[in-house]
């Protein structure tokens, strides 16, 4: 049960089909372009409030979704756009939620941080740091209770890893052998506080040891390494062995939120990672080296993605604001018996 660290090795190209590489490329690119567009719309005042972009971390969700099966559940914090796109939610519905419109996944009532999809088994979108961890553990509890073979991917960041409820969850998940994968997206900064300044240990994946939960560190910028680790973790969970921890060593290129000037790190630091470890560039190189596609073919994928994102943006601008009656709906299963001022 000891924690182990997988060597951040380059994946064997022979294992990976052309189709799979192109899918990964396409899905990661969709997230990046979508987030760039969201940043743009935020700047235009079309998106309000908090908006946390996922740029830089795309390989984590794309790799793990490639390891998931139909019926598996996932949930995360407020940095959730990438997770939603990766599990197949419609970019139009996500973008329209960001703009607070009727066509959004929550009819405009949730916003960037609070989105859900019963159809895609996406359980949020949670605004309180770390709160999604026991909730995800509870989803796994339900799976085990119902004996449906499902696994829950419970994502949280290096910041949330210091919340007490994470360890309360670890204890119960291990005690009751719940099929939950704790995915720590260690992007190295909890808002403006680096891991070195907030964690007594450099590795978060070892924090399950006290509870007997195996964990491993994974190169979260390498989508193929992520997928392989995801398959190990899901196999572990589906075999009835209880929870598993995957610490994804990753990096976010943008600030914590749109209003973060990111003075806590240098421009050079960000630039170096972009040049040396970028997840999309990595797959792009694999595709070109393996001659799975030509530059022109990749360009046509780029164009296709751009079209999807532009359509989503157009939809999010044109979708009407929610009807005023929506203020009073979805509070209770039966909204006819509301509180005092309805």
């Amino acid at each position: 049960m000891a924690a182990r660290k997988s060597a951040p090795k380059k994946p064997a190209k022979s294992n990976t089909s052309k189709e799979e590489l192109l899918n990964h490329y396409r899905e990661m690119l969709l997230i990046r372009r979508f987030e760039e567009k969201a940043g743009q719309l935020y700047g235009m005042g079309l998106i309000g409030g908090f908006c946390h972009l996922y740029i830089g971390q795309e390989a984590v969700v794309v790799g793990l979704e490639a390891a998931a099966k139909e019926g598996d559940k996932r949930l995360t914090s407020y940095r959730d756009h990438g997770h939603m796109l990766a599990c197949g939610m419609d970019p139009k519905g996500v973008m329209a939620e960001l703009t607070g419109r009727e066509g959004g996944y929550s009819k405009g009532k949730g916003g960037s941080m609070h989105m859900f999809s019963t159809e895609k088994h996406f359980y949020g979108g949670h605004g309180i740091v770390g709160a999604q961890v026991p909730i995800g553990t509870g989803l796994a509890f339900a799976d085990k209770y119902l004996d449906n073979g499902g696994v829950t991917f419970t994502y949280f960041g290096d910041g949330a890893a210091n919340q007490g409820q994470v360890y309360e969850s670890f204890n119960m998940a291990s005690l009751w052998q719940l099929p939950v994968i704790y995915v720590v997206e260690n992007n190295q900064y909890a808002m403006g506080t680096s891991l070195q300044r907030s964690s007594s240990t450099p590795d978060i994946y070892t924090r399950g040891e006290a509870f007997g939960i195996p964990g491993e560190a994974v190169d979260g910028m390498d989508v193929l390494a992520v997928k392989e680790a995801g398959l190990r973790a899901t196999e572990h969970c589906r075999s009835g062995n209880g929870p598993y921890i995957l610490e994804m060593k990753t990096y976010r290129y943008r600030g914590h939120s749109m209003s973060d000037p990111a003075k806590y790190r240098t421009r050079e630091e960000v630039q170096k990672i972009r040049e040396e470890r970028d997840a999309i560039e990595h797959v792009r190189e694999l595709i070109l080296q393996g001659k799975h596609a030509s530059e022109d073919e990749l360009k046509s994928i780029d164009k296709e993605i751009k079209g999807i994102v532009n359509d989503a943006a157009e939809f999010s601008k044109n979708s009407p604001e929610p009807a005023l009656e929506e203020l009073w709906t979805d509070i209770y299963a039966d909204d006819t018996r509301l509180g005092v001022h309805a």
Partner: peptide, 26 residues
């Protein structure tokens, strides 16, 4: 024991867990 469950003394944790279980169909 499947349906009447002793928890550890961990209110924050088991309340979150039960809330998740409710969202998951229980």
């Amino acid at each position: 024991a499947k349906r009447v469950i002793d928890t550890p003394i961990t209110e924050h944790g088991f309340t979150g867990l039960a809330t998740g279980a409710a969202m998951g169909g229980l």
